[in-house]
Write a protein that binds this DNA or RNA. Structure first.
Lengths: 346, 346
DNA sequence: TTGTATGCGTTATCAG
DNA sequence: CTGATAACGCATACAA
């Protein structure tokens, strides 16, 4: 009951020639006569022949496919990255195999194992929140698997990286709040172990410092699962709102955290920006649809996917082992909208 | 520079036994002595042996992977479906290969070709808006590839199908608007060629009819790309709002169309529900975050993915060709919220 | 209980 | 110019 497929052998048989001749004719080898080529091509067309990539992969030890591991595809930032990846990969004849870690290092481990065994020619990865041990990636990389990190990177592996200027994104967002008269700015951010977190916190702190504002560590809340679990956001916000000196603005440092913040505030009946001002990293349409259109830090996700893929394919297709690696830094953009209350500036 | 992998041969060599013995030991065959098994297993562990699925696929003509084609992953409905699919597939030892058609039949064609050549053991598909010719799918199905349609199906192929009760979803949504005193209800819907569209329109019409309300075809607007192109939604809404007898409510029949509607209204400064009431199919959080939380028809997307996968695996793993196919109908749920203005009922 | 030989679809090498 | 053969990694029918 398996479905029969036309192979090179069928063509050979139909034409009474050898498989090697067929193979060469199909690959347009110079050592095949025009007539034979013609004949084979026609027959292949007629029988609706399709080369079997599995057999090819086995033989060539390459699959013309690249793997991408993200924490979640139901996240605008990552789905935009994937679109960017596909836009480049398809043009270059590569297929993209998508895996989600769902922020679990266990799932990430399984995904990687699968992709590796699936003979992907290269790997794009943005680490899961949980990941602390990247020995598996190191092993794969050491074995020669080209890897490009994007967004959530690891410094422990020397390879191409594509990141956002997290510091600047946060600095700008924070400064925007400060300029509008906010002093008690809270930050909702990812696990401190994620590469993106430190830059984002540093940008925030630096902006506060530059404007002579005090820092209160209670105003910095981490969400272990980056907001994938809604309750953690809710609890973090609740902690912030029950501080003796309640914040007058919240800065959420990721798409998911921004959404979670909005959801929590909505549920609690807290109005933006009259009750509290909000700014967040966000690539989703939500930002535009929320009460007053939300001021957001927009990440060039599509471009990040493209750049990462370009780098990866460059490594994959280079003859010699690549030893010089770059870290590309992309610039986020602050879209200023009405979600920040303009107070009398101090 | 390719990365060397441990094969069954390496184990055999290391142990001075034959590859077949190793193979059998690894598969825990009854004809291998416990000592040998032990030895092989230990050695495999030590050498970090990983079976090569490519070789397996080639040999067994199966890949233990299933393909899923959706129009877009950046769509909550579909990403939830995918999560449902993965939840079942992983437990049963199958991997899921995700493809997006981006509502283009050309991309869909390429995706299918890829998945088929990739020897997926089965296929889950929700057709693209553009697709009218399903001969490729028919061919694949005729060749024995198990296929399960979900959401956007085709009646032209006799196989398992999982759909939503589109009629009921629309009927309920429309009736909810009517009960709140709305008479001039407009519908924003997908291409008439999509399987889901007719049921959704029929449910709307039937509700209107049951409540003795007149039908005006001008109130029914189709979006050729189902809202994937924002402009088409904008234009459709503009057409509706410039009708001599402006609608007092809009019913959007898909996640994407609901979002597009909200975005357009926001941009035009039209307020919900004071200026116009809105109800829509939606699985995204947006519904909860929008101005007044939006009344929505929620589709059991995760469940749909699960059910479709169960059916597909049943076909894949059945020994005899399956001839009896079912069509499962899942029930949507109407979440009533404040997005509909309560008028004095007529 | 274990080893040998064959084939899955393809291409590369080596002979003609 | 074309054909036979081996090899990619694995499982299995057959032999021992």
């Amino acid at each position: 009951m398996k479905f029969e497929v036309v192979t090179i052998k069928d063509i050979a048989q139909a034409l009474g020639i050898s498989t090697s001749t067929v193979s060469r004719a199909l690959r347009d080898s110079y050592e095949i006569s025009p007539q034979t080529k013609q004949m084979v091509l026609e027959c292949a067309e007629r029988l609706n022949y399709r080369p079997n990539p599995i057999a090819l992969s086995l033989k060539e030890r390459r699959s013309r496919s690249i793997g991408i591991v993200v924490c979640e595809i139901a996240n605008n930032f990552f789905s935009q990255v994937i679109n960017g990846v596909e836009s480049i990969a398809y043009d270059r004849g590569y297929n993209v195999i998508i895996s989600q870690s769902r922020e679990s290092c266990e799932r990430e481990f399984i995904d990687l194992q699968y992709l590796a065994s699936r003979s992907v020619d290269g790997l794009l990865i943005s680490l899961s929140t949980e990941t602390t041990d990247i020995s598996q990636l190191k092993t794969l990389h050491a074995k020669g698997l080209p890897i490009v990190f994007f967004d959530r990177i690891s410094e422990e592996i020397d390879t191409h990286k594509v990141v956002l200027d997290n510091f600047k994104g946060s600095y700008d967002a924070t400064e925007h709040l400060i300029r509008n008269g906010h002093h008690r700015i809270a930050v909702l951010t990812n696990s401190a172990y994620l590469s993106i977190t430190s830059g984002r916190i540093a940008g925030f702190k630096e902006a506060m410092h530059a404007h002579g504002l005090p820092l209160d560590e209670n105003y910095i809340q981490h969400c272990a699962y980056g907001g994938m679990v809604f309750e953690e956001v809710e609890e973090a916000i609740n902690r912030l709102l029950s501080l003796p000196d309640k914040p007058d603005a919240i800065f959420a440092t990721s798409d998911k955290l921004t959404t979670g913040t909005l959801k929590t505030l909505k549920r609690r009946g807290i109005h933006i920006p009259t009750d509290i001002s909000i700014v967040g990293f966000s690539n989703s349409e939500i930002a535009e649809l929320i009460g007053p259109p939300l001021t957001v830090v927009r990440q060039p996700a599509f471009e990040m996917g493209q750049v990462a893929t370009e780098l990866l394919l460059r490594v994959i297709e280079s003859k010699r082992p690549v030893t010089q690696f770059e870290t590309k830094v992309l610039q986020p953009e602050l879209f200023i909208r009405e979600s920040v209350l303009q107070r009398s500036s101090s």
